[in-house]
Amino acid sequence: MRILLTLLLMFFNLLSNANEIEMADVMRSNGKIYVVVSVLLTILIGLIVYLISIDRKLTRLEKELKQK
C-alpha cells in the first residue's frame, strides 16, 4: 500500500513537472523585462517622431506650393 502511494505521488510529481511551462518569469522577477520594454519603447517612439517630422515637412511644402 505504501509503495503504491509513493508511486502515485511520484507520478503526480512527474505530471506537474511536465506541465510547467517556462515563461519569462525570471526576467520578470528580477525586473529585466522592463529593460526590454524600455528599449523597444525608445525605438517605437523614435520611429514615431521620425514619421511626425516627415509629416510636418510635407505640410510645410504643401503650404509653400499653395502660396506660389
Partner: peptide, 27 residues
C-alpha cells in the same frame, strides 16, 4: 494620428507585460 501613437505604445507595453496563457512550444 494621436490615437495611432497611443494605441501603438499600449500595444507594445501591454503586449510585453500583460499575462498570456502558458502553452508548450509557444511559451
Amino acid at each position: 494620428k494621436v490615437v495611432t501613437v497611443i494605441l501603438l505604445i499600449y500595444t507594445l507595453i501591454g503586449g510585453l507585460l500583460i499575462e498570456v496563457p502558458r502553452q508548450h512550444i509557444l511559451y
